[in-house]
């Protein structure tokens, strides 16, 4: 029993691994085309951008908030960077482009954080508002035209063809995997071992308790949203590089799907709970379904429904377990805790 519980993990990571393994086995049995490097590389490639966004969403969820503005921040930062350097015929180099985008993203995230922390407004409502504002400014004043890779700075355009591993006839492993893995490890380390990371958990667990033990809630929240803005911008740049174009109309509209993946990964929507491992597994599970459902004979139109069913079953089982483990005389229990 103890081993079983340990295998399950603190946020049901074990269950996710099991579900993924079952899917992999079923898909391998159903189709010879599944267990190939091609499928694996495709899975990695399609997981990169959602994973970066999911890490940002995870941090906000842990802190007890919900952010729906990150796709707007991502495309705003990436598009602005590419468009400006394209107009000025200036190549900031790949690293330079990432830095510019991340600074823009962090600045936008700072606005989110400042409004949320200063006025103590509901995070969903604030980020809904800033999503509209950021997207509006991008499309109305910065540009609404699609930028092809030929109009992008050469270093950014070339990064789209930088492969880590290129197996002829079996696809390739994209080079952008390296920075994404590094960032994932960094976020994991930060959440687990830094004071800042633990403060985020504390705020999400109980904001009043966090304040009383001396955590500077306002400052932590502002730092968190700036960081998440920077992370979103990083994801935006990756998506521009992978897609080999900058389209200001993309990304916005995917926010709820990303949140769903993070929730599937075991993060609590009420804060205080969630792990990087679970999030990675959640994203991989969703992408596995999106990419390969066809292989087991289910038409691709079922993708969304399948993710929906998985999400409902996941949260439903959790809720039922919680319901059963609750002590029976509910009212008495509450009276005691209140007295």
């Amino acid at each position: 029993m103890g081993t079983l519980r340990r295998l399950r993990g603190p946020n049901n990571e074990g269950v996710l691994v099991a579900v993924i393994l079952v899917l992999v086995v079923v898909m391998s049995l159903a189709s010879d085309a599944f267990f190939t490097p091609n499928t694996f590389f495709g899975l990695v490639r399609s997981s990169l951008v959602p994973l970066v966004f999911a890490l940002g969403v995870l941090m906000v969820l842990i802190s007890g908030g919900i952010d729906v503005s990150f796709p707007a921040i991502a495309i705003f930062a990436a598009y602005t960077t590419v468009s400006w350097s394209g107009q000025a015929s200036f190549d900031p180099t790949l690293v330079g482009a990432f830095v510019v985008a991340i600074v823009i993203g962090a600045a936008l995230g700072f606005v989110n954080g400042a409004v949320i922390a200063r006025f103590r407004l509901p995070t969903l409502i604030v980020t809904l508002g800033t999503q509209g504002i950021i997207r509006g400014i991008l499309l109305a004043y910065i540009g609404s035209a699609y930028i092809a890779s030929s109009k992008m700075p050469p270093s950014v355009a070339q990064a789209g063809d930088a492969y880590l591993l290129d197996i002829p006839g079996a696809g390739y492993l994209h080079g952008m995997m390296v920075p994404v893995v590094v960032v994932t490890v960094l976020v994991w380390w930060m959440l687990k071992y830094t004071t800042f990371g633990r403060s985020i958990y504390a705020i999400g667990g109980d904001i009043e308790a966090a304040r009383r033990v001396g955590i500077k809630v306002v400052r932590t929240q502002i730092m968190l949203y700036s960081l998440v803005g920077g992370l979103a911008a990083f994801g935006g740049m990756i998506s521009v590089i992978l897609g080999k174009n900058a389209n200001p109309q993309t990304l916005v509209g995917t926010e709820l799907d990303i949140i769903a993946a993070v929730v599937l990964g075991g993060a609590s929507i009420f804060g205080g709970r969630g792990s990087v491992l679970g999030t990675v597994l959640g994203v991989i599970l969703v992408q596995l379904i999106n990419n390969n459902l066809v292989l087991i004979g289910i038409p691709s139109t079922w993708q969304r429904a399948a993710v929906g069913i998985l999400l409902i079953v996941g949260v439903g089982v959790q809720a039922l377990v919680a319901l059963r483990s609750r002590p029976q005389p509910v009212l008495l229990d509450e009276e005691v805790s209140r007295a």
Binding site: A306, V307, V315
Partner: peptide, 23 residues
């Protein structure tokens, strides 16, 4: 009945209903 919080329930059913409509 099941006891899932509304935001999670409707996040899931949004995907499900929308997915079924797509199908």
């Amino acid at each position: 009945v099941v006891g899932v919080t509304p935001i999670l329930t409707t996040l899931g059913t949004m995907q499900l209903f929308n997915g079924l409509a797509l199908v």
